[in-house]
């Protein structure tokens, strides 16, 4: 039982971490918490459903295509909900993101209906390890999520494009003074963030079912992960996601499945009370 919960907790948690990472990328680039991020997950899940169930494509290919489609949606989101308001106060952009969230939610209902849907698992069946039955889907999720995180890390830290994205995130004014077209750089960040989050929808759908309201729950769990991990920190978002996933799975099994979300918020509040800056510090610090 414990091994099973541990694996499912890590699998779900790493997905929350991935969504949180998407939010942190946008937060670092434009200084805004994107409250439509959860809906990127939901929409990505529906794209995966379309490719997998409606067009009959292989699930891995469907996930990749869904991710690319979400990247494009991310760029459209940036252009419509952020760019025009970039000079305005943060709260204006937050409200506009909330508006986009409603558009995505209701758009999904118009296109795909409101009946919960499911799609293929990456790998069917299960494996028995030390007496515990573990679904292959969980193992696949962990593997794919780790791979994606590694790729993002390499892209941001080890490549020239990553340097340019980071430079723009750190100082937009200066980036334009070295000749970087800020809209391209920010657009690429939104593409990356939405593509990452979109793939998560397809990974979670076989476990939780796909519905047009799944974004709000997943988004709030990812937000909790960010606060626990330390605002703006990528490793923090991942560790925070794992904590949230484990609390959800173990709490659901041993305490009450009805109060899973409540338990997450209890942990969140505990962090806010005792470690309000989260687990990780930011890479850039104020010089003493």
């Amino acid at each position: 039982m414990i091994v099973q919960l541990l694996v499912s907790g890590i699998a779900v948690g790493i997905v929350y971490g991935l969504i949180a990472m998407g939010m942190v990328l946008i937060f670092r680039a434009v200084g805004i918490m994107n409250f439509a991020q959860g809906d990127f997950l939901m929409f990505g899940g529906y794209f995966a459903y379309t490719f997998n169930q409606m067009l009959g494509l292989n699930i891995v290919l469907s996930l990749i295509l869904a991710s690319l489609c979400m990247g494009v949606i991310g760029v459209i989101f940036m252009r419509t909900s952020y760019w025009a308001l970039r000079g305005a106060q943060a709260k204006a952009i937050i409200v506009s993101a909330m508006g986009a969230s409603i558009v995505l939610k209701e758009g999904a209902r118009l296109i795909w209906g409101s009946i919960p849907l499911s799609l293929d698992k990456v790998k069917e069946g299960s494996v028995t390890v030390a007496g515990a039955t573990i679904q292959w889907q969980y193992v696949a999720i962990i593997g794919i999520a780790l791979l994606l995180m590694l790729l993002v890390y390499l892209l941001l830290e080890k490549t020239f494009v990553g340097n340019i994205l980071q430079a723009t995130a750190q100082d937009q004014y200066m980036s334009s003074l070295v000749g970087i077209p800020v809209i391209v750089s920010i657009g690429l960040t939104f593409f990356l963030s939405a593509a990452l989050t979109g793939i998560c929808g397809g990974l979670l759908a076989p476990i939780f079912f796909l519905s047009n309201t799944m974004g709000a729950t997943a988004g709030s769990k990812a937000f909790a992960a960010i606060v626990i991990g330390g605002f703006g920190s990528v490793p923090g978002a991942i560790i925070g996601g794992l904590i949230v996933g484990l609390v959800e799975q173990f709490g659901g099994a041993y305490i009450s499945s009805t109060y899973q979300l409540v338990l997450i918020y209890v942990v969140l509040i505990a962090f806010l009370m005792f470690r309000p800056r989260g687990l990780f510090k930011e890479k850039i610090q104020e010089k003493a």
């Binding site: 340097n163 340019i164 430079a167 750190q170 070295v178 000749g179």
Partner: peptide
Amino acid sequence: FPGLTVEENLLVGTVAGKGL
């Protein structure tokens, strides 16, 4: 750019001369 290394800062500077 505070979070980039010295060399990364310099390389980003080449965008002005060599383009994106």
